[in-house]
Simulated scan of single mutants.
Amino acid sequence: MICGEPILYKNPTTAEICTFCGEEFTCEGMCANGHKVCKGCSDNQAVNLIKSTCLNTRSKNPYEIAIGIMKNPVMRMHDVRHHILVGSALLAAYHNCGGDIKLAESLEEMEKRGKQIPPGACGYLGNCGAAVSSGAFFSIVTGTTPHSENNWSLANTLTGTCLIEMGKLTGPRCCKRDSFIALGTTIDFIADTFEIHMEKPTKLICEFSERNAECIKDKCPYYAKETV
């Protein structure tokens, strides 16, 4: 999040000084340039970027919003902040398309719910955080609760549809690929359900493949040998 270099993980046995805040913490990894960032600083930088971007954008395209945020070094290649990002980008685009929500309050709620989705949920729980983030987005804009009727069904249908689309591809996980699938599935679902038409690219080429050591390459619909 300082220089954009990949994080080199190590056993978290030594205390280090955070490059951002100067506080001592148990360090799990640093980049090749020796930058070390504690979890608190990492979380705050990424979440603040997501909220500020989504509050100030006029874009009706959640892909455009999300990818712009993904390009910032504070958003790592694979990271739990994607669980907040997907729903937040959808909230911003939905609002800009005329969706009747209070955007600032909705983004605060999305942050709260996204933080409840544990890391590695895709593999450990069989429930990708990007799909859950889409379901949270739907629940927020519709005011869905565990006691709702029709919207309860729709929220779970959306999450399930996202997971089915993700499951059509092989692993390992990719936070970028799964976010793209969740965004596209949700855009179509909202258009069919509420006739609110968020925008999406006619063709999406992933710009992050070179950063992903586990990229499935030609098996991914967004992969291109020469990224743009």
Rank of each mutant, 00 (worst) to 15 (best):
residue 80 V to P: 13
residue 71 K to V: 10
residue 92 A to C: 00
residue 78 H to I: 03
residue 94 Y to M: 07
residue 86 V to Y: 05
residue 81 R to T: 14
residue 74 V to G: 04
residue 114 G to L: 02
residue 94 Y to F: 14
residue 69 I to F: 00
residue 109 E to T: 12
residue 89 A to Y: 03
residue 77 M to I: 12
residue 64 E to G: 13
residue 114 G to M: 01
residue 70 M to T: 11
residue 114 G to H: 00
residue 85 L to Q: 05
residue 118 P to M: 02
residue 94 Y to I: 07
residue 82 H to W: 04
residue 118 P to Q: 08
residue 78 H to K: 03
residue 97 C to I: 09
residue 110 M to V: 10
residue 59 S to R: 07
residue 79 D to A: 14
residue 62 P to Q: 11
residue 73 P to I: 00
residue 59 S to V: 06
residue 62 P to W: 05
residue 86 V to D: 00
residue 108 E to P: 02
residue 91 L to Y: 05
residue 67 I to E: 15
residue 118 P to W: 07
residue 81 R to S: 08
residue 101 I to Q: 00
residue 100 D to Y: 00
residue 61 N to Y: 13
residue 61 N to S: 12
residue 84 I to L: 10
residue 68 G to I: 14
residue 97 C to Y: 08
residue 82 H to Q: 04
residue 78 H to D: 05
residue 96 N to E: 08
residue 86 V to C: 01
residue 77 M to A: 07
residue 69 I to W: 03
residue 106 S to T: 00
residue 93 A to I: 14
residue 60 K to W: 08
residue 81 R to H: 11
residue 96 N to V: 13
residue 68 G to C: 14
residue 118 P to T: 06
residue 95 H to S: 09
residue 78 H to G: 05
residue 81 R to G: 05
residue 119 P to N: 08
residue 85 L to I: 08
residue 119 P to S: 13
residue 117 I to K: 02
residue 108 E to W: 04
residue 113 R to N: 02
residue 105 E to L: 15
residue 96 N to G: 07
residue 106 S to A: 12
residue 116 Q to I: 01
residue 98 G to S: 09
residue 74 V to P: 06
residue 122 C to H: 10
residue 64 E to P: 09
residue 84 I to A: 05
residue 74 V to N: 05
residue 77 M to K: 06
residue 78 H to S: 05
residue 111 E to F: 07
residue 112 K to M: 07
residue 70 M to G: 03
residue 110 M to K: 09
residue 117 I to R: 02
residue 86 V to A: 06
residue 107 L to R: 09
residue 107 L to I: 12
residue 70 M to Q: 11
residue 80 V to L: 14
residue 66 A to R: 11
residue 71 K to Q: 15
residue 83 H to R: 15
residue 121 A to Q: 09
residue 75 M to S: 06
residue 85 L to P: 01
residue 91 L to W: 10
residue 98 G to T: 11
residue 79 D to R: 11
residue 114 G to E: 03
residue 87 G to V: 09
residue 102 K to A: 12
residue 93 A to W: 10
residue 111 E to K: 14
residue 73 P to C: 01
residue 115 K to H: 03
residue 120 G to R: 06
residue 117 I to S: 05
residue 110 M to T: 10
residue 111 E to D: 12
residue 108 E to L: 13
residue 61 N to Q: 13
residue 76 R to D: 15
